[in-house]
């Protein structure tokens, strides 16, 4: 197996992954690996297959071919233990998806209690801790609709962190936010990266990707078109990436 960090097994690895929706081939032989502590940014035009690739990692989509290994789980196999996989993987979506009928605290404690059997008092301590991590301690007893979009997204990140995942997946988590609210969310992700969290993120924030990502995967028409360190954003080699970063996508 080829991998970037020979020192340890990759946390996430995709090898020649194929995925079609009907006759539309969305992933056409996608391969990449993420080592422990690494931050990988998936970039590319809308419709290039970024979200699908990310969703395959947490098996929200079943692949048609190829191999996906995540924290030792063979995700491409039909007999994968979904609930074990999802305890190791945290995923945050563009639309936050906090549970509206539960307080922020209940949103966070639900899965640790229900899935891991954590005692409620322990889970509440944990909720305080992860909320502090995203700077929202004072919102413990608020309901999601009482929070701004940026705060809701930070709470959603905290909810994921409470499951103590080994890898976090982010799918354009700032795209639904007003520009003045993206900063507070990106800061939280930056801090996570600094703390050594392994992350795969789909993002349109090129300046952010450049600053935080250890590796960039540029997707184009369902393929990994160009990949390398963040510096490829400033000196791309393929015409497609050149055009992509040239069309105003690279703000810093």
């Amino acid at each position: 197996m080829q991998q970037n960090a020979p020192s340890s097994e990759p946390i996430v690895s995709l090898r020649d992954v194929q995925k079609s929706f009907g006759s539309l081939r969305v992933l056409d032989g996608v391969s990449f690996a993420v080592a422990r502590g690494e931050v990988l940014a998936l970039i590319g035009r809308s419709g290039s297959g970024k979200s699908t690739a990310l969703r395959c990692i947490d098996r929200f989509e079943k692949v048609d071919g190829g191999e996906i290994v995540v924290c030792g789980h063979r995700v491409d196999r039909p007999d994968v233990n979904l609930r074990a996989l999802r305890q190791d993987v945290g995923i945050v979506f563009q639309s936050y998806n906090l549970f509206p009928h539960l307080t922020i605290e209940q949103n966070i404690t639900l899965a640790p209690c229900a899935v891991k059997g954590m005692a409620s008092s322990h889970a509440k301590d944990l909720a305080r801790k992860v909320l502090a991590q995203v700077g929202l301690e004072e919102k413990l007893h608020a309901y999601p609709e009482q929070l701004s979009g940026g705060q809701q997204q930070r709470a959603a990140i905290a909810r994921s962190l409470a499951m103590q995942p080994k890898v976090m997946l982010f799918d354009e988590v700032t795209s639904a936010l007003d520009p003045e609210l993206t900063g507070e969310v990106l800061k939280v992700i930056e801090q996570l990266a600094a703390d050594g969290m392994t992350m795969v993120m789909v993002t349109h924030e090129m300046g952010f990707a450049k600053g935080i990502a250890d590796r960039i995967v540029f997707m184009h028409r369902g393929k990994v078109h160009e990949t390398g360190p963040a510096s490829i954003l400033t000196s791309p080699t393929t015409p497609e990436l050149t055009q992509f970063v040239g069309t105003g996508n690279l703000k810093s």
Binding site: F60, A84, Q87, G90, F99, A111, S160
Partner: peptide
């Protein structure tokens, strides 16, 4: 909502 819950291993 359901995907978020599935993602949390419920």
């Amino acid at each position: 909502q359901i995907e978020a819950a599935e993602g949390l291993a419920l």
